[in-house]
Simulated scan of single mutants.
Amino acid sequence: MLLTLALLLFAVFGTNVVLGSMGMGGFLGDVSEMLILLAATIAFVAAILQKEAAEKRSKEQQR
């Protein structure tokens, strides 16, 4: 779920960047864009940490 959230947030960020570069004007301001990218990064890091914790638990159960 967190990876999906990270992907969705990054897609919003990417869409804004592409629209801005095409001269169509982005729909997010500078601060909003930064906050979206920050939220995507946090969601991605949380997802990675969850997967590492699950892998560590599965390795401990195999012992």
Results as ranks from 00 to 15, higher is better:
residue 15 T to E: 03
residue 25 G to P: 04
residue 44 F to P: 00
residue 53 A to R: 05
residue 50 Q to W: 12
residue 49 L to I: 12
residue 10 F to C: 02
residue 11 A to Q: 15
residue 21 S to H: 14
residue 5 L to S: 13
residue 17 V to C: 09
residue 39 A to I: 00
residue 37 L to F: 12
residue 32 S to G: 15
residue 47 A to N: 07
residue 6 A to Q: 08
residue 22 M to K: 09
residue 18 V to C: 09
residue 48 I to V: 15
residue 11 A to D: 15
residue 36 I to Q: 04
residue 33 E to P: 00
residue 36 I to V: 15
residue 15 T to N: 08
residue 38 L to N: 10
residue 52 E to Q: 04
residue 54 A to D: 02
residue 45 V to P: 08
residue 37 L to G: 07
residue 24 M to D: 10
residue 22 M to V: 13
residue 20 G to W: 08
residue 22 M to S: 11
residue 14 G to W: 05
residue 30 D to V: 14
residue 21 S to Q: 12
residue 44 F to W: 09
residue 53 A to L: 06
residue 40 A to M: 03
residue 21 S to N: 13
residue 11 A to P: 06
residue 20 G to A: 09
residue 11 A to N: 15
residue 52 E to C: 01
residue 43 A to G: 09
residue 60 E to Q: 01
residue 49 L to R: 08
residue 14 G to T: 10
residue 3 L to D: 15
residue 35 L to M: 09
residue 52 E to L: 05
residue 49 L to M: 13
residue 11 A to T: 15
residue 56 K to S: 01
residue 37 L to E: 09
residue 5 L to C: 08
residue 27 F to A: 10
residue 28 L to K: 03
residue 16 N to V: 05
residue 11 A to C: 11
residue 17 V to G: 02
residue 5 L to Q: 14
residue 23 G to T: 03
residue 23 G to Q: 09
residue 52 E to K: 06
residue 1 M to I: 10
residue 43 A to E: 06
residue 54 A to S: 05
residue 19 L to V: 13
residue 24 M to E: 14
residue 34 M to K: 08
residue 16 N to P: 01
residue 55 E to S: 00
residue 55 E to R: 00
residue 33 E to C: 04
residue 8 L to I: 13
residue 5 L to K: 12
residue 28 L to G: 02
residue 37 L to Q: 11
residue 34 M to P: 00
residue 29 G to Q: 03
residue 38 L to S: 13
residue 13 F to R: 03
residue 10 F to L: 07
residue 32 S to C: 07
residue 60 E to Y: 00
residue 39 A to Y: 02
residue 4 T to K: 15
residue 9 L to N: 04
residue 39 A to S: 03
residue 24 M to W: 15
residue 34 M to N: 11
residue 20 G to P: 07
residue 57 R to W: 02
residue 47 A to E: 13
residue 4 T to N: 14
residue 57 R to S: 02
residue 19 L to H: 09
residue 50 Q to F: 14
residue 44 F to L: 12
residue 52 E to M: 04
residue 48 I to R: 11
residue 23 G to K: 08
residue 19 L to S: 11
residue 1 M to V: 12
residue 45 V to H: 08
residue 30 D to C: 10
residue 35 L to G: 00
residue 13 F to T: 04
residue 10 F to G: 02
residue 28 L to V: 01
residue 52 E to V: 06
residue 32 S to F: 01
residue 39 A to Q: 02
residue 45 V to D: 13
residue 56 K to M: 05
residue 43 A to K: 05
residue 23 G to R: 07
residue 9 L to Q: 06
residue 56 K to Q: 01
residue 4 T to M: 15
residue 39 A to N: 00
residue 57 R to I: 00
residue 32 S to Q: 15
residue 4 T to V: 14
residue 3 L to R: 13
residue 53 A to N: 08
residue 44 F to T: 04
residue 37 L to D: 04
residue 29 G to A: 07
residue 28 L to R: 02
residue 55 E to K: 07
residue 45 V to E: 11
residue 20 G to I: 04
residue 50 Q to I: 10
residue 27 F to Q: 06
residue 47 A to R: 07
residue 12 V to G: 03
residue 6 A to I: 08
residue 60 E to K: 05
residue 51 K to W: 10
residue 56 K to R: 10
residue 34 M to H: 06
residue 58 S to W: 06
residue 63 R to N: 07
residue 42 I to V: 15
residue 16 N to W: 01
residue 21 S to G: 12
residue 20 G to S: 12
residue 14 G to Y: 10
